[in-house]
Design a protein around this nucleic acid. Structure first.
Lengths: 207, 207, 207, 207
DNA sequence: TATGAATGAGTGTTCATTCAT
DNA sequence: AATGAATGAACACTCATTCAT
C-alpha cells in the first residue's frame, strides 16, 4: 500500500506561485530579452512566452511595459550600490584615500561588467537620465564620500556635490572610452588612471 | 505664337521652393516638435502639418524619420564645433592653458544654452550614444588640444585620448548637475570650477 | 466535555456575511459605479474594490457582470412599480380618472427622481429595450388601468394596449424634454400638462 | 499594332478613389455589418474586409470606430428628415391638419421601414440618446409644425415644444408596440390610430 | 463563503512608408 | 518638387471569467 501522501499527485507543481517569485521571473525574462533585442524591439508577447505565463499575468504584476523597465532599473541600482558599499566598508573608516580608491575600483569593475545592463536601464528610460543620475544612491554615495573626506581634511573640495559629479563624469568617460575603443591597456591600468585622475583633481598629488 | 510669359500666369507664386530651403524648413519643423514632445511621440504627419507640406514631400527630402534626426544631429555638431573652434582660435597658438580655458568656457556656455537640443540629438539617437561621443568633431577637438598641449610641455597627459574623455566627462557631469539642481552659483562660477578641475587633473596647479 | 461555545472564539467577527447582505452590498457598489462611469467603463475589479471583497466573491454571488445589471434592473422595476401601486391604491376603486391621475403623477415624480438609474438599467441593457418596455410590470399596470377604465365606461379606448403605449410614450417624452431642456415650469405644471394630454387623448375633455 | 490606348491597361481600376466615395463605401459596409451583428460585435477588421480596403484606409477616413456610427446617424437623420419634409411639403401650406397627418404618416412608415437602423444609430450611440432626441431636425420639425398650427388657430397647444415631445413619444410608443407585438392590425390602421391620438390630444376631435 | 493569482482571446489604433499622378 | 490616398504590419493593454485553496 502506497503511503497516504502518494495519493495526491506528488508532482503537482503549483501553477500559482508567490507573487514575488513570479514577478522576479518576469523581470528576468524581460531583462534577457531587452538586453538581446532592445526595449522597443521586445514585445510583451515575447516576455510572457519566455517566462512561460499568459499575457494577463504580466499585467497582473506590472502596470505597463515601462513599469518592468523601472523595476529593472531599481534592481540594478540597488545591486550596484551594494557592491560599492561593501567595497568601501572593507576599508578603515578614516582611510579616506583608500575608501575613494575602493569606490572607484568597484565602480570601474562593476560598470565594465554590466555596461549593457546599465545602458538599458539608464538610456532607454524616459524622464531624462539626467535627473536620474542626480538622485540615485550611487552618486549620492560618492558625494557623501567626497564631502566626508573633505570635512576630515583628507582633501579639498569646496563644492563636494559638484566635485562628485565631475569625478563621476570623469570615471564614466574613461570607462566609456575603453568600451568603445578598447586599448591594449588592462583593466587594472585603466583603474589606475582613473584613480590618478581623481587624486589629481582632489589635489592629493602633484606629479 | 503667343509670348512665352503669357502661357504661364505671371503671378504664379512658385509652389516649389529650392530643395535646400524646403529641407531646412522640414528640419526646423521637426526639431521644434521633437523638442516639444520627443522624437517617438512626434509623427511624420505632425511634421508635415507644421511645415505646411504634404506627406510625400517629407519622403522626397528625407529617407526615413530617423534620417531627419541624423540631419539634426549633424547640424548641431557642426554648429557647436564652430563655436568651440572660433573661441579657441582667438587665443595665441602657444597659449595652451588659454586655449583649454577657451574651449571649456565655450563648451559650458554652449551646452547650457542648448542642452535640450543636445539631449534630443544624442539621447534619442540609436546606435548607442557612446560610440557617437567617441568619434565626433567635438571630442576629437578636445583630444587634439590635450595631446598638442602635452607634446609642447604645457601639461602632462600620458594618455591624451583618455584624459580628454575624462575631462569631457567631468565637464559634462558638472553642467548636468547644474541643470538638474541649479545652485545659486553663477554660470561664471561654474565655469571657473570646471576649469580648476581641469587644471588640477592636468597637474597645472596644486592648491 | 467543554462547552460548545468554547470551541469557537466568541469574538470572531464573522468574515463571511449572510449571502443576501453581501449580494446587496455588491449591487450597491456596482450601481454607484455604473451611474458614475457607465456600465462598460466599469470593471469588475472596480466593483469588488468598492465593495471591499475579492474578485472571486463577485462571481460567487453573480453569474456574470451583466447579471448584476439585470438584478439592478429588477430591483428598480419592483421599487418603481410599488410606488405606482400604492399611489393608485390610495384612490377609490371606481374613481378611474383619479387613478389615472395618481398613476401619472407618481410616474412623473418617480422618473424625474431616478432618471439616471432608469437610463442605466434600461438603456445599457441589451436585448433591445423595446421588448423590455413591452412586458414589464409598470407598462402592464398602465395598460390594465386603461383597459379597466374603458370597460367601466370611464373613457374610450378601442385598443387599450396601444393607448397605454401611446400615453406612456407621451409621458416619457414630456419628462425627457424637461430633463434635457429644463423650463421655468415647475414639476407640478409639467405633471398637469401630462395629465391634460392624457385626458384629451382619452376624450375626457375638449378644451 | 494595337491601338495606343490598349498599351495602357484599360482595366486599370484606379486604386485611389475620391475621398467622398471611399468614405461612403466604408459607411455602407459598416452599416450592413452593424445591422447584422451589432456595433460592438463588429470589428474594424470586418468592416475593411467588407469594404475591400486596408485597415489604415479606415482610419484615414474616420477618426475612430465610433466616428462611423456618428456619421451613420447623421446620414440617417438627414434622410429621414427629407422624407418627412417632402411629405409635408406636398400639402397646402394652410392645411395644418393635413400637414400634421402627412408628417405622422410619413414618420410611421419611415420608422417601420427602418427601425433596425434607427435603433442602431440612436441606441448604440453614447451621449445619452435623450439629448439627441431633443435637438435633431426631426423633432424640431414636428415642434415647428405644432407651433405654427397653434399660431394659426388650427389647434391649441400652450406649450408647443412639450406637445411635440408628447406626440412624438406617443407615436414612438405606438410603433414600438406594433414592432414587439405585431397585431393583426394593418399598417394603415396603426397610422389611423396614431393620427386619432394626435388629433384628440390637440383637441381637434371629441369622439 | 471567500480568496487572488492566472488566463488568453480579442481589438482598436498608430504610423512609417509607398506610389500613382 | 509635390501631392495625398492607401497600405498593413505591429502591439500594448483590457477584462470577464476560472479555479485551486
Amino acid at each position: 500500500m502506497p503511503p497516504a501522501t502518494a495519493a495526491a499527485p506528488a508532482t503537482t507543481r503549483p501553477r500559482t506561485k508567490p507573487a514575488v517569485v513570479r514577478r522576479e521571473e518576469l523581470m528576468d525574462a524581460a531583462q534577457a530579452l531587452f538586453l538581446d533585442k532592445g526595449f522597443d524591439a521586445t514585445s510583451v508577447d515575447e516576455i510572457v512566452a519566455q517566462a512561460g505565463v499568459a499575457k494577463g499575468t504580466f499585467y497582473f504584476h506590472f502596470k505597463t511595459k515601462d513599469d518592468v523597465l523601472r523595476a529593472l532599473r531599481e534592481r540594478f541600482v540597488v545591486k550596484f550600490h551594494e557592491r560599492l558599499e561593501s567595497a568601501v566598508a572593507a576599508c578603515a573608516p578614516d582611510d579616506w584615500s583608500g575608501r575613494l580608491e575602493a569606490w572607484m575600483e568597484a565602480a570601474v569593475d562593476g560598470y565594465l561588467d554590466q555596461f549593457a545592463l546599465h545602458d538599458l536601464v539608464f538610456h532607454e528610460f524616459r524622464p531624462s537620465s539626467r535627473r536620474m543620475q542626480h538622485d540615485n544612491p550611487i552618486t549620492r554615495h560618492l558625494a557623501t564620500l567626497i564631502a566626508d573626506g573633505a570635512q576630515n581634511g583628507a582633501w579639498t573640495a569646496p563644492y563636494p556635490r559638484l566635485m562628485a559629479a565631475m569625478l563621476f563624469g570623469g570615471f564614466h568617460g574613461a570607462v566609456d572610452e575603453e568600451i568603445v575603443a578598447p586599448s591594449k591597456t588592462t583593466r587594472q591600468r585603466l583603474t589606475a588612471e582613473v584613480l590618478r585622475f581623481c587624486r589629481m583633481a582632489l589635489g592629493l598629488a602633484c606629479s
